[in-house]
Write a protein that binds this DNA or RNA. Structure first.
Lengths: 202, 202
DNA sequence: TAAAAATGAATGATGATTCATTCAGACCCG
DNA sequence: CGGGTCTGAATGAATCATCATTCATTTTTA
């Protein structure tokens, strides 16, 4: 009762966090369905049962992770975009953030690229949430660019958004699967070179 | 022994085929890990054990499917590309084939987009096989185009291939998840418009 | 009728989840 | 102080359901 009241909250949040981090590492290593809750517990240095004091189920661990990771990413993106007015530069920043963010944490990237897509159920649930929002940020930026006469108008913004997202996404997937180690961030410029200017010789 | 020698082969192949088709439908519906072998057997109208007369394991069903589907697709692609000499038109044909093929069979598309990506293991195994070959067909076509002075040279062909593939792939994924029903094939032209010419106003 | 194909009940392993028990620290009282 | 008590966190062995796979038996085919 007379406990110094913020301390326990912090403690609990930390352990939840630790389980989450351990889970990501385990999921990244062997895939969601091949990971045992016992593996996660071991990776987090706790007993199997303890996992259930912080999460309702194995499923909820993955969900929590996505929800938080995506919300964080979008919040950061919006923050940075607010400082930019030129749509061309906005798209550049989006591409860079996307690749730098995932390029900075391989486990996170693996879980995002691989596990997120591992079930239509997840995809749809997730789709409904953050993913659609992300696509629509790109889409709105393209609309802005069209209004300002910077981008061609014979292209549906929603299609443009999918193309850019798809290209970035493929960069990440290839990076994960590649045996070679290289920086993902710089690929943003390569993608944008094509997205903005196309491959045809003028 | 005195069997009219091609008939039983055919018969066996047909049943194998039927199991494969049933499996795809089931996998597409609930995901590989959530699908029971019993579900597949029921969908194929046979007993559980019969599945094992044609496949060594559940895993092998998925593998067989990928191997065959990918080999067929690449063979068909090569056949059609052989009739085209212009790299621009070759890429157009690739994009159309890609989207028309998956757009014609939703179950096939779901398994390809979702299950194939559902595990790093699968991705890597698969990657080693047909997928790398597909990417390199695109890459070589871009190289040709560069040699003929059609495509800009300040772009690595391998990167260009990933961008085009990624954009097409995203069209398929969105199509699968979309509640609206629309034709996937025609999206090829939209993608190529951007891939060839870029989004910037001239 | 013999061989091949198919059956589906039984087996055995696996692994998510539960819960009776232990443990650690906070608080109280003499 | 120092030991007793309470609370909630943590434990991990046991439970229980779920399937992939097998194989003795039956059915079909030729």
């Amino acid at each position: 009762m007379a406990r110094s009241n913020s301390e326990p909250r912090t403690f609990v949040a930390d352990k939840r966090e630790a389980i989450l981090r351990a889970a990501i590492k385990v999921f990244a290593g062997k895939g969601y369905f091949n990971s045992k809750v016992a593996d996660i517990a071991k990776a987090a240095g706790i007993a199997d049962g303890t996992v259930y004091l912080y999460f309702k189920s194995k499923d909820e661990i993955l969900h929590s992770f996505f929800d938080r990771a995506m919300a964080d990413f979008i919040a950061e993106g919006r923050r940075q975009l607010a400082e930019i007015s030129n749509p061309v530069e906005k798209l550049r920043r989006i591409a860079q953030l996307h690749l730098e963010h995932l390029g900075a944490d391989r486990d996170l990237a693996i879980v995002f690229q691989v596990e997120l897509r591992g079930s239509t159920k997840f995809m749809q649930e997730f789709s409904a949430a953050g993913f659609a929002e992300y696509l629509s940020i790109i889409q709105e930026t393209i609309e802005e660019g069209q209004e300002q006469g910077l981008f061609r108008r014979d292209l549906k913004p929603v299609v443009g958004a999918k193309i850019l997202y798809g290209a970035l996404d493929e960069m990440v997937t290839n990076w994960i699967l590649s045996k070679k180690s290289y920086a993902l961030g710089p690929m943003a410029d390569e993608v944008l070179k094509v997205f903005f200017g196309g491959v045809l010789e003028q």
